[in-house]
């Protein structure tokens, strides 16, 4: 994904809670976990550096308490980092004034919250139109826009309902619609589906992917559910104790975890879900092929087709050039977990 231009980046971001966070970092010090704990501080985010490309779904994954929420709040400057830089379109957000931040948030950022954060006294329509209302957009304009996004998330007909009258999944659809009402460039989602039942969660993930295919936002998505991460992510950052341990595509994470901690997560993941054809193909063209498949297709998605055909398939890159071929054997290796790579 390195070819995408960088939309949002953070450099050496720290967020330390406690009596005197600044002192710990004085003079560019980089205290380790033990030092921070010994001085009765909490290192919620430690020295985080990452780049999010334009149009990318960047997932931050970690156990509860690992600092995901704090990091995403540093990125949106809901939380003031103790140290570091947040670069949005190359400009340091931490240097923006209050008024500038308000303007940036009004027009360029949207956020979805774990517990929906809907306003209980407003209807669905009013909730979705709210971000436009605070900007002073006239009622007809903002309501028309709100209806558009409500339709986008499939809630037509519920405009007059109050949040209480909706199911959890519907409420979060409202949350999503609301965060999209201002057509943000940057879309933050903090565990948006964690409060939902597993079935609804899957449905919402599909919905989310559908919407993203239409809108192509730059997304920072938080989850503690590794399955969710690999389903949605272009890239995943694994967090532990406030630090980013590994940033990689799902496939790389599964195939070459940086350490045992990451390996623990990936052990039970069916490889077929993450491994792409590009990874298992034999380079070079085959003599005779049954068809062509893209290199970034995941094995799970195309296994049936490849297995069902006596001939191998050609693998093509994004430009449509044939870069290799793959046969049933390679797919079966993945499916039964035989060592690859």
């Amino acid at each position: 994904m390195q070819h995408r231009p960088v939309k949002l980046a953070c450099r050496g971001v720290w967020k330390i809670y406690g009596p005197d966070p600044a002192r710990l970092l004085a003079g560019g010090a980089r205290p380790d976990l033990a030092t921070i704990r010994a001085s009765h501080h909490v290192g919620a985010v430690r020295d985080a550096t990452l780049d999010v490309g334009e149009g990318e779904i960047f997932v931050i994954m970690g156990l509860s308490g690992s600092g995901k929420s704090t990091l995403v709040r540093c990125l949106s400057r809901l939380v003031e980092p103790t140290a570091g830089e947040i670069l949005f379109d190359g400009r340091d957000l931490l240097k923006a004034s209050r008024a500038e931040m308000i303007a940036i948030r009004r027009h360029k950022m949207g956020m979805v919250f774990q517990h929906f954060a809907l306003l209980p006294h407003l209807t669905v329509l009013e909730n979705v139109a709210f971000p436009l209302e605070v900007q002073g957009v006239a009622r007809p304009t903002r309501e028309a826009r709100a209806r558009e996004v409500i339709a986008l998330v499939g809630l037509e007909g519920r405009e007059g309902h109050y949040p209480r009258q909706l199911s959890g999944g519907q409420q979060q659809r409202v949350g999503i619609a609301r965060s999209l009402a201002v057509e943000p460039e940057l879309w933050f989602l903090d565990e948006p589906f964690s409060a939902l039942d597993p079935l609804i969660r899957r449905e919402m993930q599909d919905e989310f992917l559908r919407v993203q295919r239409l809108l192509k936002k730059t997304i920072v998505f938080i989850t503690h559910d590794f399955d969710e991460a690999i389903r949605l992510a272009d890239r995943i950052a694994i967090m532990k104790d406030g630090a980013l341990i590994q940033i990689a595509t799902p496939e790389e994470l599964v195939l070459s975890p940086a350490d045992d901690y990451v390996a623990d997560f990936t052990r039970h993941v069916a490889r077929a879900k993450v491994v792409t054809l590009g990874r298992i193909m034999t380079p070079g063209p085959a003599a005779e092929v049954a068809g062509a498949l893209p290199a970034h297709a995941r094995v799970e998605a195309v296994a049936d087709r490849i297995e069902g055909s006596p001939l191998p398939h050609a693998v093509i890159d994004e430009a449509g050039r044939v870069i290799g071929h793959v046969g049933a054997r390679a797919v079966i290796d993945v499916l039964i977990g035989r060592r690859i790579g």
């Binding site: 709040r73 949106s76 809901l78 308000i102 303007a103 948030r105 009004r106 027009h107 950022m109 949207g110 956020m111 919250f113 954060a117 709210f130 971000p131 605070v134 900007q135 965060s179 933050f188």
Partner: peptide, 9 residues
């Protein structure tokens, strides 16, 4: 936080 993100004064 939502209020902040919506750009409320």
């Amino acid at each position: 936080e939502f209020a902040t993100m919506a750009g409320c004064t």
